[in-house]
């Protein structure tokens, strides 16, 4: 008999393939875990409509749980309520910064976002383009240390 808590512990090891320091729970895309006898239902939600990592994340969930002895796994994808970066955990934000990606601010404060350089901590930064290596990031540069960096957009 598996418990939802045990399943969540296994899922803590399932990360975003594009940002391997973040677990799906840190990212806020793990919506729910329900255990019905031997049947485990894991519900996830995509970040952006076209996020190409979703297929891989779904298969990683099945693989991780199967390795932990849970065979009967169903991964459901729900769209509503729409994911927002406000669901990212505090721990996730810290891990992002350590990884060199400036974490998202709170969505309501985004009229003129102030983004700190993850390298030197300076606020003297500027956006170079709204679009970067993945849909969820924008490209910035620091005017103090002159290093470019990714920023996880508030969304």
């Amino acid at each position: 008999m598996t418990s939802a808590a045990a399943v969540r512990e296994v899922l803590a090891g399932v990360t975003d393939p594009e940002i391997p320091v973040l677990s799906i729970e840190d990212l806020g895309i793990l919506r729910d875990v329900v255990v019905e006898g031997e049947h485990v239902v894991v519900t996830v939600t995509p970040t952006y409509s076209g996020c190409p990592a979703m297929d891989e994340i779904r298969s990683d969930i099945v693989t991780a749980l199967s390795a932990a002895g849970v065979q009967d796994v169903e991964v459901r994808t729900v769209l509503a309520p729409a994911w927002t970066t406000d669901w990212m955990s505090e721990g996730g934000r810290l891990k992002l910064r350590e990884f060199g990606i400036a974490p998202p601010g709170q969505l309501l404060l985004q009229i003129r976002p102030r983004v700190e350089c993850p390298q030197c901590g300076s606020s003297d930064t500027e956006e170079m383009t709204r679009f970067a290596s993945t849909s969820c990031k924008s490209m910035w540069r620091c005017l103090s240390c002159r290093e470019p960096f990714d920023h996880f957009k508030a969304h």
């Binding site: 409509s49 383009t129 290596s133 849909s135």
Partner: peptide
């Protein structure tokens, strides 16, 4: 990169 990001959003939709 920007145009491909836009296209990816639209493809997902």
């Amino acid at each position: 990169v920007a145009l491909m990001n836009l296209a990816l959003d639209l493809l997902g939709q």
